[in-house]
Design a protein around this nucleic acid. Structure first.
Lengths: 187, 187
DNA sequence: CCGCGAAGTCAATGCTCGGTGACTTGGACG
DNA sequence: CGTCCAAGTCACCGAGCATTGACTTCGCGG
């Protein structure tokens, strides 16, 4: 049993935020109710709107994404593949931010914009830095495979993909991602 | 102006179905209302539940997916790549079934199951037929890239990807898909 | 021209949700 | 021990939704 919840606004706020993130990651924006968020923490739903201003604001704070790709320049292909897969897999295997954003992006243009922006503005430059040409296309293709993997693994839960450990993911996806980034462009 | 809607149940039903499919593809299950579906056709929402039994039944009829992959056996890699990309791109570039299912799968376990099942049971065997080993993993990886592409192109609308024509998609994705299917497996 | 069944309408019901504002309670501090 | 403000609660809107069942209207066959 956790210590019997003192009246600590900062702690309550933080608890609400992580509870919301978990629920958003599992159910998506529309199907999460402020009542449910409050229940998880054991607090009245009105507090949620008091602390965050409303459901939309709660979401945008809970789903803020930080991709933090390492510098890929100078890495040999193998190392680059490992770095990419490791970082992206960590992003959706541990941490609910990406999943919350992904689930919600499917039906909310704002969330879709936020996810696209995170992918393009945060991961984009690091990816483009090692692309010999067509940097936007290459970065976007990497993003598409990452998003597809996250979807298959956590939303669809395709058994063959959900069962892969990180090594296996590295083995399959590494070549694809590095190929998109540094391989030859079509015609 | 279309002919002033006679009282034709079959036609009304069909119109409702395609209207629903379009809306589901654009907004996802939760954000589509039976009122909206009725409005598109110019008919009372109660008719929708009369004809289909309810919103859930309407969706599952509207989003029924037929993937219809051609036989890939005996094709050289280039031809196989073209066949795969062409079919999958057609599936989400023209036709709302896949998009409706994809948008909804993000937040509905039933829709997620339906999409997974379509991918595995319909496309799976055709893909597995040309896989030298690990057929489930290979088919699932193809599926993950296809889903990611659909998501990036139609949900996120990443400019670099939304702008690609079919030839360019073939050039970028063909090698990846064929690589997943017939390339060497990791270690 | 009439009547009857199918096609479509209408109003109402019950539910859930986000958000609001007045209220109560806890605890730190003097 | 008492005061006082922040932390938390409570009851309550107003809106939107799917679904229901009784009603009305169209149009075809006789």
């Amino acid at each position: 049993m956790p210590p019997p919840r003192g009246r600590d606004a900062a702690r309550t706020r933080a608890d609400l935020l992580t509870a919301a993130r978990t629920l958003f990651a599992r159910d998506g924006y529309d199907r999460v109710t402020l009542r449910a968020v409050g229940d998880v923490v054991g607090v009245d739903p009105a507090l949620v709107v008091r602390y965050f201003g409303g459901k939309a604001a709660l979401f945008s704070e809970a789903a803020r994404l930080e991709i933090d790709l390492p510098d890929l320049r100078g890495l040999d292909p193998e190392a680059m593949a490992d770095a990419l897969v490791d970082r992206f897999v960590a992003l959706f295997d541990s941490g609910d931010h990406l999943l919350a954003l992904l689930r919600t992006a499917a039906t909310s243009p704002e969330a879709a914009g936020a996810l696209t922006e995170a992918l393009l503005d945060q991961a984009g430059p690091a990816l483009a830095a090692v692309a010999p040409d067509h940097p936007e296309e290459r970065a976007a293709l990497v993003g598409s495979q990452v998003v597809g993997l996250a979807f298959a693994r956590h939303v669809l839960v395709v058994p063959a993909i959900a069962a892969m450990d990180r090594d296996r993911l590295r083995g399959w996806l590494g070549p694809t991602l590095v190929g998109y980034l540094t391989g030859p462009a079509p015609v």
